[in-house]
Design a protein around this nucleic acid. Structure first.
Lengths: 221, 221
DNA sequence: CAAATAACCGGCTGATCTGCCTGTTTTATG
DNA sequence: CATAAAACAGGCAGATCAGCCGGTTATTTG
C-alpha cells in the first residue's frame, strides 16, 4: 500500500476548487489566509452552536474580521456555507489519512483493516466530524444547504470507494466485502457518536469491539 | 413474553407528566387537545425545518392557534421544547411497541430478536425519529435544550433496559448480550439513517443484513 | 508616481423571532 | 344569574440576522 501516494491522490481529489496551489502575490496570500481564518471560525461556530449558530455575525466576530471583509469574500451566507462544506469534507479526509498513515507506520504489523477501523473511529471524534454531522443533519431540512452538501458528500464517497479499490489490489476480488465493511464502520461509528451521552464509554467500547469482530469476519470467509 | 403487559408498562413509564389520564371537564379536554395540536405542529416544524425551524411563530401557525393561546400553554419557547422532548420520546416508544407487537402477533414463529431488530429499523424511519435526531443533535450545542433532553434520554434508556430484562426472563443469563445487541442495532440504524442519502438503498440493505448476522451470532455463542 | 484594482470597513434597512402585555370570549362555580 | 377563572386573541418593544451600500486603505500595474 503506497501510503504517500494514496494521501496525495485522495487529498487532491477532495481539494476545494478555490485553493489555487501556493499563490505568490501578497494580496492573494493574505486573501487566502483570511478566507481560511473565516472557514475555521465557521467550523468553530458549527461545533459550539450548531448550524443555527453559523451566522455571518458570529463568524466575523470569531475570525476577527469585519463584516465588510466577510461580505467581500462571501457575498451571501450560503456562499460561506458552501465553502465550509468543501472545507469540512477536505479536512475529514485529511485527518483520517494523517491518523491512519501514522498508525500504519508505527504499527504496520497489525491487520490493516483493524488499523483503518480504529483510525476511522478516532477521526469521528474530532471537531471536524462534529461539524460534518451538523451539516449532514441540517442538509436534510435545508434545501439550499443540501444543494451544496449532497454533491460534496457523493464526491467524498466516490473518492473513498475508488481509493479502496486502487490501494488494496491484493484484495481486489473482495472489494465488495471491503466496501461493506467500510459502510458498516461508518454507520456504527456515527451512530455511536450520536448516542454517546446516553451509552457511556463502557457500552461504546463493547459495541466497537463487536463491530470490529463483524468486520474481521468479512475477510475470513 | 406478555405483550400487552410490556406495552402498558413501558408506555406508563415514559408517559409525559402533564398527561393526566382522561380528564372529564370540557375545558381540560379542550386544553389537552390544543396542547397536543401544538406538540404535533412542533414535530412537523422539526421534521421540515430542523431545530432552527422550531419557532413559536411557526408552531402557532401550523397548529392554527393564536400566539396568545400558545403563550398561555407555553410561556416560553423552552417550555414548549421541553414538552416536545417528552412527547417525542413517548411516541418513539409507542411507535416501536405498536410495530413490534403487531409483527410478533403476525409472525410469532420467527426469531424474536430478528423481529425486534426489524421493527426497530422501521421505527427509525418514522418522522418521529427524524424529530428525535434533530433534538439529539441540537442538544449537543444548546445547553437549555440539553437540560431537558438528556434526562429524558436517560429515562428512555433505563426503561428500555429494564423492559428487556423483565420481558425476556428466559435469557436472563444473557442479558448483557441482549443489551449489547440492542445498543449495536441502535447505533447502526441511526448511523444508516444519517448516511442514507449517500449510501442508497442497496448498500443500506447489505449493512442491515450484516448487522443482523452479528446480532444473531451474539446468542448462538 | 498615478491610475486601477483588490481588500477592508461599518452603518443602514427590512424581516423574523421572543417575551410581554392588555383585552376578549368561553367555561366553571356558588 | 353573577362572579371567578381559564382559554384565547393579537399588538408592541427589544434583539438579532442577512443583505446591501458608500467610503477607506493597501497593493498592483503601467
Amino acid at each position: 500500500m503506497p501510503g504517500s501516494t494514496m494521501q496525495k491522490r485522495m487529498l487532491a481529489a477532495m481539494r476545494p476548487a478555490t485553493l489555487g496551489d501556493e499563490p505568490v502575490r501578497w494580496q492573494q496570500r493574505k486573501s487566502a489566509q483570511t478566507r481560511l481564518k473565516m472557514l475555521e471560525a465557521a467550523v468553530d461556530c458549527l461545533v459550539t452552536g450548531g448550524y443555527a449558530g453559523l451566522t455571518t455575525a458570529q463568524v466575523a466576530e470569531r475570525a476577527a474580521v469585519s463584516r465588510g471583509a466577510m461580505h467581500h469574500h462571501f457575498a451571501t451566507r450560503i456562499e460561506l456555507v458552501a465553502a465550509v462544506v468543501d472545507h469540512i469534507f477536505y479536512q475529514r479526509i485529511r485527518l483520517f489519512l494523517d491518523d491512519y498513515l501514522a498508525a500504519m507506520a508505527q504499527r504496520g504489523d497489525e491487520e490493516l483493516i483493524d488499523l483503518a477501523t480504529q483510525a476511522h473511529w478516532r477521526s469521528v471524534q474530532t471537531r471536524e466530524y462534529a461539524a460534518y454531522v451538523e451539516l449532514a443533519v441540517a442538509a436534510r431540512t435545508d434545501p439550499e444547504l443540501n444543494a451544496a452538501f449532497e454533491p460534496a458528500a457523493r464526491r467524498y464517497d466516490e473518492v473513498w470507494t475508488a481509493e479502496m479499490i486502487e490501494s488494496f489490489p491484493q484484495w481486489r476480488d473482495q472489494w465488495h466485502a471491503m466496501k461493506l465493511g467500510s459502510d458498516f464502520a461508518i454507520a456504527v461509528h456515527s451512530g455511536l457518536l450520536l448516542h454517546r451521552p446516553v451509552f457511556g464509554q463502557d457500552r461504546i467500547d463493547m459495541v466497537l469491539k463487536l463491530s470490529m469482530q463483524a468486520i474481521s469476519a468479512l475477510y475470513k470467509s
